[in-house]
């Protein structure tokens, strides 16, 4: 878990298969498509969407963190929960922004009436 560029070869061209940036498409296919032949070992992949959401949040926060020069995922064992918190904080900030915009629009309207 050290070489991020190597772990996310999104820009690499693959000989046969997905163009760059389609990790969600790949997961959708390898996780629950393909013919199911019962194996000897049962792995429960029931909540596939949950797995992929976690992955998405993780990638989003890696991108953000990389820009800020942060590399907590190398040492933090609870990286997925941290990723989820990051996404919440991000969403929180977005909602605040939106609220501010709405409030100022409302003030404008009230101002126009007076």
């Amino acid at each position: 878990m050290t070489d991020l560029e190597h772990r996310y070869p999104a820009r690499e061209t693959e000989p046969y298969g997905p163009p760059s940036g389609s990790l969600a498409d790949l997961l959708e296919r390898v996780l629950d498509k393909g013919i199911v032949i019962a194996g000897d070992i049962k792995i429960d992949l029931l909540d596939i969407e949950l797995l992929t959401i976690r992955l998405r949040l993780f990638i989003a926060s890696v991108d953000t963190a990389k820009k800020a020069g942060i590399d907590w995922w190398e040492t933090d064992p609870a990286l997925s929960s941290r990723a989820a918190r990051d996404a919440l904080a991000e969403e929180n900030a977005r909602l605040r922004e939106r609220l501010d915009a709405l409030e100022s629009a409302a003030e404008e309207t009230t101002g126009a009436v007076r």
């Binding site: 498509k33 393909g34 070992i41």
Partner: peptide, 9 residues
């Protein structure tokens, strides 16, 4: 015919 990930024997 691809098998799903984690088909293990």
């Amino acid at each position: 015919v691809p098998l799903p990930m984690a088909t293990l024997y």
